[in-house]
């Protein structure tokens, strides 16, 4: 058999027995000590700020065309140059943050709700339902993300909502697997038995007694998977399966720039850098959070 790994469970700051401060403060302190997490968080907040305040930051409209100024190299008025339609690449990169973050966070949120529920219910109820759900998860996980993502987008058609849905569908099995193991372990705990014995409904047990115990880990992983989701969004947009034009997304900007890579590199290179920075920020944040959550894995 595959060597079984024991599941990790959230142990918020167990190793700092300082009673003068609240647990919340303790977590915050540990967080601030973790440089990776802090840098990641700062960048992520900056990107979010850019997304929210893009109309204030962007010097030009991201969609207004001026074809006579196409492919201007980066200089004074257009620091990132202009694209095929003469649109300002800098402004489009700024506005592109909106779609990336919106899709990244909302698809992970949706996937988290769906997947965690699936995993918890499967582990808690057992039986046929368990087999059904976990088999389905196995099937979904047996495809590379890009393959399944392409299929779902082809079936659903392009568009913002479908994009979010597709990525959420890709994310759900991960959360299901994540929630499944700990729930299985917790189900056997005495206090869960006790709760059941005093007549708590299944839903109550799941929400009040099991969820809080696994939530920490789910939250940590959702940060990491937001990075994955943002990258997936870029992949799908790059293949032309994302949000409809003229809405700028980093992925579709790179796509349109690809054909002119040799003469107008700036159209692709700047949005790519934006993806890199954003994904990196979420990866750093997630990585740091994981270290804090599980000091044993601390490296």
């Amino acid at each position: 058999m595959r060597p079984r790994k024991t599941r990790r469970i959230w142990k918020g700051g167990e190793n700092t027995p300082d009673s003068s401060i609240t647990p919340r403060q303790r977590i915050l302190r540990t967080f601030l000590k973790n440089r990776t997490a802090v840098i990641g968080a700062v960048i992520a907040v900056c990107v979010a700020g850019v997304a929210i305040f893009s109309p204030l930051i962007a010097p030009y409209s991201p969609v207004r065309q001026n074809v006579r100024y196409r492919f201007q190299p980066p200089q004074g008025a257009h620091i990132f140059g202009t694209d095929f339609y003469g649109r300002d690449v800098f402004s489009r990169v700024i506005y592109g943050a909106r779609i990336s973050l919106l899709v990244g966070t909302s698809s992970v949120l949706l996937g988290m709700v769906l997947g965690t529920a699936m995993g918890m219910v499967a582990a808690y109820r057992g039986g046929r339902l368990e087999t059904l759900i976990m088999r389905a998860v196995d099937v979904m996980m047996s495809f590379p993300d890009e393959v399944l993502g392409i299929m779902i987008m082809v079936a659903l058609g392009s568009g913002l909502f479908n994009l979010i849905l597709a990525i959420a569908i890709l994310m759900a099995p991960r959360f299901a697997r994540l929630a499944y193991g700990p729930t299985l372990a917790l189900r056997e705990r005495d206090y869960v038995d006790a709760a059941r014995a005093v007549g708590c409904s299944d839903i109550r047990v799941l929400f009040r007694h099991i969820l809080p115990n696994i939530f920490g880990e789910v939250l940590v992983m959702s940060t990491l998977w937001t990075a994955t989701a943002i990258r997936l969004e870029a992949n799908l947009s790059f293949l032309g399966l994302g949000v409809s034009p003229p809405t700028p997304t980093w992925g579709n900007m790179i796509r349109t720039g690809l054909d002119h890579l040799t003469d107008a590199w700036w159209v692709s290179v700047f949005p790519g850098a934006a993806i890199l920075v954003t994904v990196l920020a979420f990866n750093m944040l997630g990585d740091g959070l994981r270290d804090i959550a599980d000091p044993k894995l601390r490296t």
Partner: peptide
């Protein structure tokens, strides 16, 4: 390595292409 796994493969490909091929 953190940067490496944050790279979308297509973007890394484009950068390598720009540098080594173009």
């Amino acid at each position: 390595s953190l940067a490496g796994l944050s790279f979308p493969s297509f973007y890394l490909g484009i950068l390598l292409m720009l540098l080594f091929a173009v």
